[in-house]
Structure formats: structure tokens, C-alpha cells
Write a protein that binds this DNA or RNA. Sequence first.
DNA 1: TGATAAACGGAACAATGTTCCGTATAAAAC
DNA 2: GTTTTATACGGAACATTGTTCCGTTTATCA
Lengths: 210, 210
Amino acid sequence: MDDKSEERGGGLEPLNSTDRRVRADAQRNSKALLEAAMAVFAASGVDAPVREIADKAGVGVGTLYRHFPQRSDLIVAVFRNEVDACANAASAIAAEYQPGPALARWMQRYVDFIAAKRGLAAAFSSGDPAYESLPLYFLEKLRPALQTLLDAATEAGDVRSDVDAKELLFAIARLCSPDHYGGGPDQARRMVGLLVDGLRYCAPSVGSDV
Amino acid sequence: MDDKSEERGGGLEPLNSTDRRVRADAQRNSKALLEAAMAVFAASGVDAPVREIADKAGVGVGTLYRHFPQRSDLIVAVFRNEVDACANAASAIAAEYQPGPALARWMQRYVDFIAAKRGLAAAFSSGDPAYESLPLYFLEKLRPALQTLLDAATEAGDVRSDVDAKELLFAIARLCSPDHYGGGPDQARRMVGLLVDGLRYCAPSVGSDV
DNA sequence: TGATAAACGGAACAATGTTCCGTATAAAAC
DNA sequence: GTTTTATACGGAACATTGTTCCGTTTATCA
């Protein structure tokens, strides 16, 4: 490995190809843009003007485009960021609650995530190749997270063992999907609650074990 | 009733509030715009530029906006037009085929309609109030059409009797929905075929009647 | 402290939805 | 057939975006 010079800071700043550290303001602005975009998308949907995001982040549009060359790059970044947050929430919740309640809490967390992503569903199926990688990322991050919770709950005897994490993720996403021609987010919440109860139904601690 | 003057033509030109006939060129252009929009939407999706539609119809954008004040008005008009066509196809098919085959044929016709409306599904759930009326129109037109075919097929003993037209419409629409994360239109077609077979399953003429 | 490459900001450009208004014309009145 | 008039037409002009460009600023390094 080729070492060039000792590092000053905490050592977590990535290096550029010509050995120059990434500038601090660039890191700051990138983070600010991501947070601003998250807030604006949540408030006005993914079709919100780019200038609004740049303004909210306190930078010019040029800076925005330097960090996210296409509008879709920003959308993808926000999405991945929120997928990560949702996945990370799993271990945090697992550390704080018993397996059964942890599973139920995380499922509601996941519902919130899905419900907030209304606009993205359209982007997914828009055919734009920029979003092609998202479904895979979604699955690769969230499936293990749910599987872990599921395994723990199964082992604790809180839920049945014959459910597949992937199917559960999709089933919930479908329950939350808006084209039910009526019935808002409350209905989705109720249906998911029902689903969770269903998970408990044949669990050993309830009775009727196989 | 207040009669004003005898009519010249076939008598099917609508009258204006001040008793003036709707100009022939206006009727022509309106129709041309609708057809152009249908073709352009099919080719390039509902996000196609309005100028492209106006050009294809051979009129100026001003004329387009005279007939369809908002972009969404044009989309709505095209959608209703195609819903009508799909609903009308039911009676045409019913006149030409036996009840059982007629049902199967119309279902595939309906699949084509749904598959072509990918872009509109996004518009439906976009929250834009301009599209609020579409689901109702969809249901009010298509449900009776399917119900008629279904009743005829039931009476002929070709299909079972315990299926609801509305549920069937939605089930097919869902089977055709793109967010299956893989599996194209062929899969949708196969699934709908399976559904139709399912309809036949407990029909009297097959056997096991209730 | 000075040199330098990276990053910044926002004006300028391009594409598109929408409005406006002078002109053309179909229908009616005579 | 001519005149009148309300209607419709066309497309330039405007507004709102996404995106690019480049002169200026600045963090980093020697």
C-alpha cells in the first residue's frame, strides 16, 4: 500500500485520486443537500423544484449539480439513505424490545417508510434506468433486517415459523399501495396490524403448535 | 320546450347557450386532437409535450388549450374515451361469440387496455384532483360491461356464479400492475389466463356443481 | 504565506406548460 | 350574395422548470 502523508483529523475523510483530501465544505454541502432534499421531498413530493432544495441547503444550484449530476441521483441518494435508516432501525429496536414487540414496532416503522414513498413508486415503474438499482438495494438491505427480527421472534416462540421475509415485505408494500380506489393510510395500518396478528396466530406460545 | 329554428344537418350538432351552432371546424379539431393525443400518449407516454400533440393534430397550441384548458383535461378525455371503447367492445364481442369465449376474449381486451395505461396509474395516485373522477368512471363503465358478459356465461353454464365483477376487474388490474419487481406483460397475461380458467372450474357444465 | 486544484454560485440556456391577442372564418341575418 | 358577428384559430410571448458553464472563492498543501 502506498502511504503519502499522515492524516490530521479523525482519519475518516476519504482521499481523492490525486491524494488530496475531500474538502470539508464539500462534505458539509453534500450532507446539507441530502437533508434538504429529504425534507423537501417529504413536504412536496419528488417533483419539487431543484432550486428549492438548493435554497433550503443554502447552496447554489451549481453546487447541487456538482454533487448530484442528475436530478435522479438526488432522488436515488435520498431513497438509499432512508432504506438504510429503516434497516438500521431494526437493530436499534431489537436492542430495546423483546423479540415479539420488536418485530411489531419495526413493521410499523416500515409502514411509515413505505407510506412516505408514494412518489417513488411511480419513479420505480417509470422505466427510467436511473432507478433500476433501487428494488435490488431495497431488498438486499431490508430483507436481512426483517429476517433477523423474524428469527428472533420465532425462536422466542412469539410468531410462527412459516413466513418468508421477502414475501412479507412485498405484502406490506402492496397493502400500503394507494391504488385501492379508496381507503387511506389508516386502512393500510389496520391491514398490516392484521398481518402481524396473523403472524402470531400459530406461534408455539399461543397454543396449537405444529 | 323552447324551439328556435329548424336544423339544417342531421340534427346532432349540439347548440350553444346563445343558440349558435358549434362550428364545424371546432368539432373537427377537437376530434383530431383527441386522436392525436391517443396516438402520442401510446407512443411516448402521458408526459409527451403538448406541442407534439398539437402538431400531430395539425393545429396550434392555442387551439389545443381552447378545447382542453389543462393538460390533465386531455389526459382525462383520452382515458374516458378508451374506457368507453373497452366497454363498448363487450357488446360487440358478445354479439359475435358464445358466452364463454366472449368472456375470455373480452378479458384479454381488458388486459390490453390496462397494460397500455401504465403511465396513467401514476397519475391516478398522484393526488392531483383532476384525476379524482377517473376511478369512478372506470368502475361505472366497465363493471356493467363485465357483469353482462359474466351473467351470460353463468347462464350458459360456462362459468361459476360466485364471482364479483368489481373484484375481478381489480384483480386483473393488480395482476397487470408493474411493481412485481420482475416479470413482464407475458406473466400478467398468463396469470389472467389462469384466472379465467379458475372461473370455469366450478361451472355446471364441467361437473361438480353446488 | 503563496500556489493550486477543488468547489462554489448564479447567470444563462433549453425544454416545456400556459396565456394572450390579433387575425381568420363559419354561421347567421339581411 | 353581402354584411355582421360571435367563435375559433395560430403562434408568439411568458413562466417554470431541469441543466450547463464559467468566473470567482476557498480549503488544502508545501
